[in-house]
């Protein structure tokens, strides 16, 4: 009986039922077992959507740019799903999800679906279930799925492993940011856009970025470096070109086979994360490690952290203990 309802929700999503699509996302976000059950069934219907990651430091204009990109694709008659991620408070768990404000005029377009997500304790710039929510949009038939990260600093680069192409958005005045980003975010980009290019400092930013990319030393030649585009999303300048370039990049990677390799790697990473999550649950909850740690603490600990960890794992009869220093 329940199984019929489950099948129904995925089928309804694929048939274009917006409420079903939204509820399926909620199940995914809550880690509801019914979602995993359904996802096993619709995996072979995924893959037609192009997944585009949009990331960059806070204030770079990501949401405004996403709004512009969606309009550009709508103008080319492509349907678009957007997953917009904002941070949860590590203290209260609450979140203010404000990305829709910049995409207000898209709300009533039947070819657009926007979902806001809070990070809920994840620190990679996306939420744990963002990949699943993107899958649901893929299942629902959206041609392009856009993943907008929280405003990132250096190392929040999960998005690169969740999409087919990663766009890093920068803005003039962010020169120092580039210095700080060399190791993380900068490596994640397949494409850069200098947004707010109507402001002074655009040329300097492009120069700094080129210099940083040269130092990156990847391949060396200009041709293999990620392209740098310029735009002013608020004024609508350069956005259509950027939208075209993003899709062209994905088509190029499809043609040379690198898209499939990337998707395989992304899938492999997701499986690892799912397995790791299950293993943690198994150890801490099912096998009672969390409870035994609490008990040990209540008794008054005399052991070092390493010794206590070893004791917990030893009690478990776990070979892992021998790996501890």
């Amino acid at each position: 009986m329940i199984l019929v309802g489950q099948t129904d929700l995925a089928t309804r999503t694929a048939d274009g039922d917006v409420s079903a699509c939204a509820r399926l996302m909620t199940w995914a976000e809550r880690g509801d077992a019914r979602y995993a059950e359904l996802a096993c069934g619709f995996a072979d219907r995924l893959g037609s959507a192009v997944r585009i990651g949009v990331t960059g430091p806070p204030g770079a204009g990501k949401s405004t740019l996403v709004d512009g990109l969606v309009r550009a694709w709508r103008g080319a008659d492509r349907s678009v799903g957007v997953v917009a991620v904002d941070p949860s408070s590590p203290f209260t768990g609450g979140a203010l999800l404000g990305d829709r404000v910049r995409m207000a005029d898209l709300t009533l377009d039947p070819g657009v679906f926007i979902r806001s997500m809070a990070t809920r304790g994840e620190f990679g710039g996306l939420a744990r279930a963002t990949d699943d929510v993107a899958d649901v949009l893929d299942l629902a038939g959206y041609d392009v799925v856009l993943l907008e990260t929280v405003g990132v600093g250096q190392s929040e680069v999960d998005v690169a492993r969740s999409c087919d192409v990663t766009l890093v958005v920068l803005h003039p005045g962010a020169g120092d940011t580039i210095q700080a980003m060399k190791a993380g975010l900068l490596e994640a980009a397949d494409l850069y856009v200098v947004n707010k290019d109507d402001l002074p400092g655009g040329d300097a930013l492009v120069a700094q970025l080129e210099e940083a990319l040269e130092l990156r030393g990847e391949g060396g030649s200009r041709a293999t470096r990620p392209p740098i585009l310029r735009a002013s999303a608020a004024g609508g300048e350069g956005v259509v070109e950027l939208a075209d370039q993003l899709l062209a990049t994905v088509e190029g990677s499809r043609a040379d086979g690198s898209l499939q390799r990337r998707r395989d790697q992304n899938l492999s990473r997701r499986v690892r994360r799912l397995v790791e999550g299950r293993l943690l649950q198994r150890a801490w909850v099912d096998q009672g490690l969390a409870e035994r740690l609490d008990l040990a603490m209540a008794d008054g600990v005399t052991l070092s952290a390493h010794a206590l960890a070893r004791t917990l794992l030893d009690d478990q009869g776990d070979d892992e203990a021998s790996l501890l220093p």
């Binding site: 917006v18 409420s19 939204a22 509820r23 996302m25 909620t26 949860s88 408070s89 209260t92 768990g93 609450g94 979140a95 203010l96 999800l97 404000g98 829709r100 404000v101 207000a104 709300t107 009533l108 679906f113 926007i114 979902r115 806001s116 809070a118």
Partner: peptide
């Protein structure tokens, strides 16, 4: 938000139609 809720801020000047579309998509 401070009470631990996830608040989707929809903004100003919304029509009832747009409010309901947002509520449905955001579940």
């Amino acid at each position: 938000r401070d009470a631990g809720m996830e608040v989707v801020y929809g903004g100003l000047h919304k029509t009832p139609e747009a409010i309901v579309a947002m509520a449905v998509q955001e579940d």
